[in-house]
Design a binder for these strands. Sequence first.
DNA 1: GTGGCTGCAAATGTTTTGCATCCGT
DNA 2: ACGGATGCAAAACATTTGCAGCCAC
Lengths: 154, 154
Amino acid sequence: MSLDRNGFADLLRGKGLKVTPQRLAVLSALFQEADSHLTAEEIYHIVKAENPDIGLATVYRTIQTLLELKIIDRIYLDDGYVRYEPGHIYETGDSHHHHHLICVKCGHVRSFQGDLLEEFEKKIEEKTGFQIQDHDVKLYGYCVDCLKETNVKK
Amino acid sequence: MSLDRNGFADLLRGKGLKVTPQRLAVLSALFQEADSHLTAEEIYHIVKAENPDIGLATVYRTIQTLLELKIIDRIYLDDGYVRYEPGHIYETGDSHHHHHLICVKCGHVRSFQGDLLEEFEKKIEEKTGFQIQDHDVKLYGYCVDCLKETNVKK
DNA sequence: GTGGCTGCAAATGTTTTGCATCCGT
DNA sequence: ACGGATGCAAAACATTTGCAGCCAC
């Protein structure tokens, strides 16, 4: 990640927010892993290790604030949990082509950048009259590791 | 829809389930509209009109049962509500190419059948080693009606 | 010092579950 | 009549909110 603790502090200050250890801890948790898709509960547990007194409500409030400022993004992988990831602005600068590959066996999630949907969307606009602004694409299948395992067993 | 009350009854019997007025009412609610995407609460209200004594728990239990039997499908439109629609097996026989167009202005949802993702998926498989089984595509934009309104106002 | 931020507990909204009763087979 | 299905109420969750005290500025 391109942001460290100093970067987070600047980010918060720049938005007129107070720089608190709780906020730094939540940001740090979300940005520490390259391809993180954490739930609120997971963030809470990570943050609690470093800051045992933090309350779950603070985690939720911080998430809410960070979402509004587009510092983080909310994603739904449809496994019953709401997840959060580093905001695309601070990641790749490109959300429109950011998709998720979800392994149906181990649940691993990885992001993928691709831009092959223009034609697809154009066709749909022609057929339906709908004017497409954005899309959300989830691909379900088997990740490389689970494919290897299956082959060994066969 | 191709199924009526008799069809529902046969369907339930065929799966070894009892045919109850509550189950028929829930099925009827879900299949009565061509492009329905109802929440549990919405189903409950519809069903209550005809069967005032039904409990919300029964609606949830029925939904659960129907999901397991693939008579209905669960969809997430990421507006905070879980929704249900007629199972693709009883609709088009084709789920892989069933996508959702969601209007960001009025919230209207319409389904769309399209099959232009093969190339897209093949490219991703080549680049990532992931083996894609299925996908979930949501397209956000403006529906025909909202586009009309916008034009008039301009 | 002040206003925003936090922790705690209580409230909220959705979905699930326990249990006695009921009804489809 | 048997066992699954139902209705009700309570429980279980995830998330939000009210409020008194705290701390970053």
